[in-house]
Amino acid sequence: MCKICELTKEDLENMTVDMVFKYIDEYAEYKNPEAAKQNKVIQYADEAPSYV
């Protein structure tokens, strides 16, 4: 995945795991904005609290 997003070893050495995940999310949104919107809706639906 890092190769697809064009992150180098040096980039990864200077980033936290959270920064890498955010970068990958932003890269995916840049490459395909419509799919990114759908994925975010699904992600937020999975995180919604259940009141059962």
Rank of each mutant, 00 (worst) to 15 (best):
P49E: 13
N39I: 01
E34C: 05
K40F: 05
A28R: 12
Y23V: 03
Y23R: 05
I24C: 11
Q43I: 03
A45V: 00
E13P: 00
D18S: 15
K22S: 11
Q43V: 06
K9E: 13
K40M: 14
E10R: 12
D25W: 10
P49V: 11
C5E: 04
D25F: 12
A28K: 12
N32I: 07
T16H: 03
Y51L: 14
E26I: 02
K3D: 06
S50Y: 00
K9W: 05
M15S: 01
I42T: 08
L12K: 10
Y23K: 04
K37Y: 02
A45Q: 12
E26H: 07
S50T: 00
Y30L: 13
C5T: 11
K31H: 08
A48C: 06
K9M: 02
F21K: 12
K22Q: 13
Y51H: 09
I4R: 07
E29R: 15
Y23I: 03
D11R: 02
C2Y: 11
V20G: 01
V41G: 03
E47K: 08
E34K: 15
A28W: 03
L7N: 07
P33C: 09
V41M: 09
V17Q: 06
A35S: 12
Q43Y: 14
C5N: 04
C5I: 08
E10T: 14
E47D: 03
T8Y: 02
A45C: 05
F21T: 09
F21G: 04
Q38K: 15
V20I: 12
T16I: 01
D18A: 15
I4K: 07
D46H: 14
V41F: 04
T16V: 03
K3G: 01
Y30W: 04
Y51V: 08
C5Y: 02
K37G: 04
M19H: 08
K31C: 11
E13A: 14
Y44V: 11
D25S: 12
D18P: 02
I42D: 08
K9P: 02
D11L: 02
D18I: 13
V41E: 14
I4M: 05
N32W: 07
Q43K: 11
L7A: 11
C5A: 15
K37I: 11
E26K: 08
E29A: 15
K40D: 10
Q38T: 15
T16W: 02
Y44P: 00
D11P: 01
E26G: 04
L12F: 03
Y23P: 02
I24L: 09
Y27L: 04
S50R: 07
P33M: 08
K31S: 09
Y44S: 12
A28T: 11
A35L: 14
E34W: 03
K31N: 08
E29P: 00
N14A: 09
D18W: 10
P33T: 05
M15F: 02
N32P: 04
D25G: 13
E29H: 11
D25L: 14
E26P: 01
E13R: 10
V17K: 07
T8F: 03
Y27V: 08
M19T: 09
K31Y: 05
Q38I: 14
D46C: 09
A48P: 00
E47G: 00
F21H: 12
A35M: 09
I42M: 09
E34I: 14
D18R: 15
Y27A: 11
E34Q: 13
E47A: 06
S50G: 00
D46G: 15
